[in-house]
Structure formats: C-alpha cells, structure tokens
C-alpha cells in the first residue's frame, strides 16, 4: 500500500523572486489592479510506501527536493 504526499517548495522570505515579480508585472499589464506579493514555487507529488515516516519525508526535502539555503517546504499527506 502507498500514500500520497505533496511537498510545496517556496522561496524563503527575503530571497529575491524575479519570476514572481515578472508574473506580478504581467498581471498588472493585463489590467488586474492591486495584485501584490506574487511568488512562484513548486509542487512535488508522490506516492510513498505506507510505512514511510515523517522523518524520512523530511529528509527527502532536506537532501533533494528543497535547497534549505533559499527555500522553505511544506509537507502534506492527502
């Protein structure tokens, strides 16, 4: 049996996010007013074996899925 896990990876506050800025600018160009603080991240979804521990999933994030110097991550199980 397996369970579904999703990991949301976002840039830490204070880390320049030029992609977020570009999206924000484009939304303004399209005529959407008052859009602020746009950020862009990644969503990683996976099926893991049922007995996978939270600690193991955290390790996956620390070692590969996120770069802890610049990114925060949030683990969710469906």
């Amino acid at each position: 049996m397996s369970k579904k896990i999703s990991v949301k990876v976002t840039l830490k506050k204070g880390v320049l996010d030029p992609q977020g800025k570009a999206i924000e600018h484009a939304l303004g160009t399209l005529g959407f007013q008052g859009v602020e603080n746009v950020t862009q991240g990644k969503l990683i979804e996976m099926d893991v074996a049922d007995d996978t521990t939270d600690a193991q999933i955290k390790e996956m994030c620390e070692q590969l899925l996120a770069n802890p110097v610049i990114e925060d991550y949030e683990i969710k199980s469906a």
């Binding site: 320049l16 030029p18 992609q19 570009a22 770069n67 110097v69 610049i70």
Partner: peptide
C-alpha cells in the same frame, strides 16, 4: 545558492 538571474 544560485538563483535565476535577476533580469530573468
């Protein structure tokens, strides 16, 4: 870390 270039 190495981020995307500032001007994208």
């Amino acid at each position: 870390a190495l981020l995307k270039n500032k001007n994208l």
